[in-house]
Each structure stands twice: as C-alpha cells, then as structure tokens.
Simulated scan of single mutants.
Amino acid sequence: MAGLWPDMAVIAAGIALRQTDRWWFGPARDRPFHHRAPGSLRAVMSLQRERLNDVTPLLLLLGQWLELAGWCLVAAHGGPWGRAAAALAGAVAFRRLQEISHFAVHGVLARGARLNTLLAEVAVHVPLGFVPVPVRRRRHVREHHPNATVAGADPNLAELHRAGLRAEAGTLRRVLGMLRPLTPAGLSDTVRGLAAPLRLPGTGRLRVLGPVAAATAMALVLGWEAAVFAFLIPRLLLYPQLAWMSLLVEHRWFDPEPAVGPPVVVEAGRCLRLYPRNTLLSLVARGTWLPYGDLYHFAHSAHPAVRWNYLPALERSLYGPGYRPHALLLGESAVLRRHCRALSSARPAVVPAERTGPDIP
C-alpha cells in the first residue's frame, strides 16, 4: 500500500486541478450574485457571461486526464484490487469527459465556438473514438433537444428502440436492453462505433487511430495494465453502460405527457428528476454516472444554454417535472420499473433506419 502513495498524489493533483473551474464559476464567490435572485434565468445567464473564459476549461480537462493517469499507475502497481479500481475510475473519467464535451457541444464550456469544438475534439472525441463534434452537435442539439421522446424524430429514442426497449419486446429482451452495452450485441455496437470513422471520406478515416494511439501510449509509458484496465475495459464495457444508464434516466421515454407552451412546460412533461430528496444518492450519482449537471437534466433540457455550474440553482426556480422518482430500480416509482410498465401498455413504435456511429447524449 505504501508504494501507491505517489500514484495517489497524482490522482489528488488531478482532482485539485479540476477544482479551478468549479471555483471560478461557483456562485458563492460572487457576492453580488446573491442580490440578483440567483435562481432566475436572467441572473444565471448574466453571471455565466461574466465568468466564461478559455483557461479554466483547459485546466478542467487537463485535470481529468491527469487523474486518469494516476489511476493508470494504480492499475500498474496495485495488483488485482488496483486494476479493478482503475477500471471503475476509468469508466467514471470517461463519463465526466463525455459530459464536459456535451457542454462544449452546446457552446458553453469556453468562450469561443472554435475553442469549444477544439477542446471537445482533442481532449475527448478523438482519444475516446466519439463521432466528430459537428455530427454530435447535429444529432444532439438539432435533432434530440427539440424532439425528445418523439418517435421517428428523436435519435436517442431510436437507439433505445433498437436496443430492444419497445412495446412488442418481451420481458427478457427489455432487461437485456437496459444492460445493452454489457451484452455481446452491445459490445459489437461499441466496436462498430469505434470503427465508424473508416467509413468517413479522406482524412476523417484517421480518427479511428485516436483510441488506438491513446491505448498504445498508455501501454508504452505506464504499462500494459494501464492500457487494459484503465482504458480498454472502461471504454469498451463499463463506460458505455454508465452512459446508457444516464440515457435511461433523462426522460420519460415511453410515456411522456405532450404539452404545448414554453420550454419549461414542454420539458416538465417529458423529463424526470432522479433522487429529488436523497442527498447521499444524489452525491454518488453526481460524482460517478450522472456528472456535470446530468442529474439536472430537466433544467438542462428547459435551458440548454446554461452551464452545469448553475443548473442546481436554476432548477430550484423551475416548476416540475412531475415525475420525481426516488430510485433507479427498486420501489414503486423507480425509473426502470416505470419504463417497463409504460412499454407494456404502449403501442409498437416505428423505428427509423439505423444511423452510422453511436449517438452520444
């Protein structure tokens, strides 16, 4: 255990580096903010415009990769338990990177549009093998956000349908659909997604080398254990499952309440809010599988231009959503149980043709 202290120091340094962005955007350090109705959209956007910069986002991403490097060292030096811990930490790191780049796609990670795209590509999309940022922006911002839960229009709902979460599927198929990334079919989807750049024209094909280069660099510099347990296993199995779980708890996918009106009203009928009063589970979710504002998806859906730092305060001023489950799986109001009940009473949906590459929320 004593030999792991240098590795833990690297992890601690990465965590500390990430806090610069949190501190800079934290409303608590801006006293005038407390006199501007901090939960109001106008106050949030005003403070966000004042705080947007090009330095702390870079430190945030560097800190995340530095922390992952520390876990790579733990995988190399920590034996079986260290490798298991590194695999879990790697999956969480990739979830965080996914969500950070998600806000870059919305244009609120850094100040300039070009820098948002560059940071997302270099620090997340290329090394992790995601689709190009413009493709993700089109699918997520232009196709998903206005059409969330709308069959035939929402690409995320189409992904759920193709995974077996549809009305005509049996119970076993639905259970497997909720664990899709861990199944052979799900793993095949993940590998096909990583290989999708081969179908791009010209230099776009070179994007497939991103994850290969990242894994190779880890193996050469930090050892094969780092490449296998802190990168390959998380990227191929564990991270996709965490991302899939996040997708499942974003919306009332199969029983939305259609509404007409401002975005808050519309999203209140098709979103949900997990763990509304359970502080412990909320903290665990925010630190692992629902990071960087993903727990506050209702507030994000209603106001996509708001950075994750201000979503909790904004949510407190919003009315809704009506569905506020206390659990993921167990209990009468649990999200997955509700999905199953909704599917049991739903009519078969039309599934659009399969897309090239995975849809990343």
Rank of each mutant, 00 (worst) to 15 (best):
M1E: 08
D7S: 15
A9S: 14
I11K: 11
A13E: 09
A13F: 15
Q19T: 15
W24D: 07
W24L: 14
W24V: 11
F25D: 10
F25I: 01
P32I: 02
F33Y: 12
H34E: 02
G39K: 06
G39S: 09
L47V: 05
Q48F: 04
L61I: 12
L62G: 14
Q64S: 14
Q64M: 13
G70F: 05
W71G: 04
V74L: 12
G79Q: 10
W81T: 13
W81N: 03
A86H: 05
A87W: 09
A91R: 05
A93H: 05
F94H: 08
L97P: 05
H102S: 03
H102F: 04
G107K: 10
A113V: 08
A113E: 13
N116M: 11
E121D: 14
G129W: 06
G129K: 03
V133K: 03
P134I: 07
H140T: 12
V141L: 09
A148N: 02
N156W: 03
A158R: 12
E159S: 12
H161E: 14
R162Q: 13
E168G: 06
A169Q: 10
P181N: 07
A185W: 10
L187K: 00
D189H: 05
D189W: 04
V191E: 00
G193W: 00
P197D: 01
R207Y: 01
V208R: 00
L209E: 01
A214P: 00
T216R: 01
A217Q: 03
L220Y: 02
V221M: 07
A226S: 08
V228I: 15
L238A: 07
W253C: 08
F254Q: 11
V260P: 00
V264Y: 04
C271A: 14
R273E: 14
P276G: 04
R277L: 01
Y292H: 14
L295E: 03
H300A: 07
A302P: 00
A302D: 01
N309Q: 13
L311S: 12
P312D: 08
Y319P: 08
P321I: 10
R324F: 09
P325M: 01
L328N: 05
G331R: 11
A334L: 10
V335G: 06
C340I: 12
A353F: 07
E354Q: 13
